[in-house]
Design a protein around this nucleic acid. Structure first.
Length: 260
DNA sequence: ATGGTAGAGTGTCTA
């Protein structure tokens, strides 16, 4: 089974790229973030004609998550227990969706950005991760994948210029500690072993030709529970998908799984 | 400190 995650930055504007991506890599399950659409707005014909089911959640034009699967899509859950909300109207329900696909529990996660360290959104981000961790502790003994845009660069090597990020969100000690908490609980970054080295990124800002100069961040991750991680046979970042006109600012991350 | 680009949808907001 092949599972992928991708912050697509609008599913409607990039549906052709999504369909081409599914075809090109023969993907079974795709978790999406920043779909930027409500469920009833989504273009589904090209997906259903390929044999995929879709579960989506989204209440505004900024967030939105979805799971696309051709190996079953059961027990769909929007949000996780205790998930914090922020502001009015609350948009938290656009940040997490879970489903069981081919025997694996997949959570598509769009972790709050945090904006600035002195912004209430930063506190919200840390709280959101803390509540997610509490739920995830209850899933760790089952085949579970926590996938998506974590908006955290766990290591200095995950940032193109760590000095320039001093004092910025995504690299602060509390954010990194929050990420590490999942690792401490037994989840593994199942992609890094297959994509070693510095200057390996999943996101490049649209500004300043960051992709062309490979000045990016590694912030999109697949964290697998022990039984999930044990089945991982390979992984890669589809860096080329970020190239050219009409690309998302994130590249898809792909994991191959062979469960007993 | 600011600005640069992109996508939502017409006013800015978000990243």
């Amino acid at each position: 089974m092949r599972i992928a995650t991708w912050n697509v930055n609008s599913l409607r504007s990039r549906i052709d790229r999504v369909e081409a991506f599914l075809d090109r890599h023969d993907v079974d399950v795709l978790a999406l973030q920043e779909t930027k659409a409500r469920e009833e707005q989504l273009p589904l014909m090209g997906l259903t004609s390929r044999g995929y089911e879709v579960a989506a959640a989204g209440v505004n034009q900024w967030n939105g998550v979805a799971i696309i699967s051709r190996v079953g899509l059961e027990d769909v859950e929007v949000g996780f227990p205790g998930m914090p909300t922020f502001g009015e109207p609350p948009v938290a329900e656009s940040r997490a969706i879970g489903a069981t696909c081919g025997g694996v529990r997949v959570w598509s996660l769009y972790v709050p950005n945090g904006r600035k360290v002195d912004d209430p959104h930063y506190v919200y981000k840390l709280e959101w991760l803390a509540r997610l961790r509490e739920s995830a502790q209850g899933w760790v003994d089952t085949p579970t994948a926590l996938v998506g845009d974590w908006n955290v660069a766990p290591r200095d090597e995950d940032v193109f210029d760590i000095l320039a990020f001093a004092g910025s969100t995504h690299v602060t000690a509390p954010e990194r500690a929050a990420f590490q908490g999942f690792i401490d609980d037994g989840y593994d970054d199942v992609v890094r072993p297959h994509t070693p080295g510095p200057e390996v990124y999943t996101y490049w800002d649209y500004f300043r030709q960051r992709y062309e100069r490979n000045r990016g961040l590694r912030i999109d991750f697949v964290l697998g529970s022990p039984s999930f991680a044990a089945g991982v046979t390979g992984a890669f970042i589809d860096r080329d998908e970020r190239a050219g006109k009409g690309a998302s600012d994130h590249a898809p991350v792909v994991v191959d799984l062979d469960l007993p």
